[in-house]
Design a protein around this nucleic acid. Sequence first.
DNA 1: AACACCAGTCTTGTATACAAGAATAGACAA
DNA 2: TTGTCTATTCTTGTATACAAGACTGGTGTT
Lengths: 234, 234
Amino acid sequence: MDKTAENGPWADESGDTSGRKKGQLHAEAAGKLRSMILSGELPPGERLREMQLCEQLGVSRTPVREALRTLAAEGLVDLLPNRSVVVSELHAPDLEHLFVVFGAIEGIAAELACQKITEAEIGEIGRLLAEMIDFHARKERAPYMQINQKIHQRTVEIAANPVLYTVWQSLVPRVERARALANLDTGRWTGALFEHTKMFTALASRDGKLLAQLTREHFLNSLPFLQSRLENDG
Amino acid sequence: MDKTAENGPWADESGDTSGRKKGQLHAEAAGKLRSMILSGELPPGERLREMQLCEQLGVSRTPVREALRTLAAEGLVDLLPNRSVVVSELHAPDLEHLFVVFGAIEGIAAELACQKITEAEIGEIGRLLAEMIDFHARKERAPYMQINQKIHQRTVEIAANPVLYTVWQSLVPRVERARALANLDTGRWTGALFEHTKMFTALASRDGKLLAQLTREHFLNSLPFLQSRLENDG
DNA sequence: AACACCAGTCTTGTATACAAGAATAGACAA
DNA sequence: TTGTCTATTCTTGTATACAAGACTGGTGTT
């Protein structure tokens, strides 16, 4: 089971349709649609007509339909039988549900990671954290977010549980979308960074219980900020 | 987001292809294939030829392919690009990964359920537990397992978190398959029942932390039994 | 006997065609 | 004006056709 990230989201695709081998158009389509949803190009509630997507993506309906099944499994779209597919909504209450679960998942990952992490990996995370602090000082949000994402991903990878990784992957798109829709509040930004330093300390001392606790709180703390932004936008 | 169980596994299908409205052949196909895998009719490692499945299910390749994407998202099959789809293997180490995550998920569910459960629902779970004790006394394994499954499901439902429910649903097929492949050891059976009574006490007194702990242990305890059975079988 | 190579067959990936169920707009009645 | 009914159009669901990449078996060479 779990040939980890075989065809999962975030596997490789980043619009680099050029270098791809022939075939697997449906995976390519899924990647493009996913980033269109995450970027907001396809807003929540948007009705997706298959033929329209075919024209935009330059493929036929077959791979498009298969891609839509994949996105449905990721929770990015809702399949309405015999009706259109729509980009799933993202309401504030849903967000709470999502963050409670996601925080718990990353909490488990954190606990496992503490048991398995090597000195070299602690150093690696430490360097990433240093970079992140740097970007924060320069107020460069985009690269900050990228490093942030990488730290979380590395933690889950270090936990070395393919099932956990798959579940985590399946939730990341929605979390990322929430972050994209509601760009991080500046006040929260500094707080989040501080939490990250505390989390690193726990990780470096391999205190799994503490790190899990901090991780859950980390997500719970950012929740109200995202929720308020979502409510303002509609 | 999350039109909960819209097209997810375990939604409704149980071979009752008769009463179903037209269309949605792919959902029907997914249901049949899922139960074929869970029942062991399609054993781990089995190579699935699309045409062959078409004949068995009496539909064309299009719905079959879409069903296979769904099953891939559930982790029941692996998609090998340009090669066949195979029923995913279930090795002892994978099982540990699965149970750690699943136990944690049900642990979260248990904690949430304790916050939200009503007196009526406590009564309902209590009655289910009594039935289960009955079936254990009579050594009727199949109905016991059914009630067991139902208790777990009701707990997750009571937690009232659609994201959690979806994640839980996505893991259940694999857990069920593990149970099916390695029928429960008799010694473990009594132990599991005892754990269930303890868990009910915690639930009835709404002790979320305790119940979460007991739930995680419940899965961890049954793990070695399942693993040993799997190793014997190959 | 072992290995490499090649042709034929099989299987998947994609496109297209057709059928059936929804959405929509317009006409007609209240 | 508003509501409803119907006919047309649109969209999805499914089947089939075609192309391209894998597998298999046999043949020839070393």
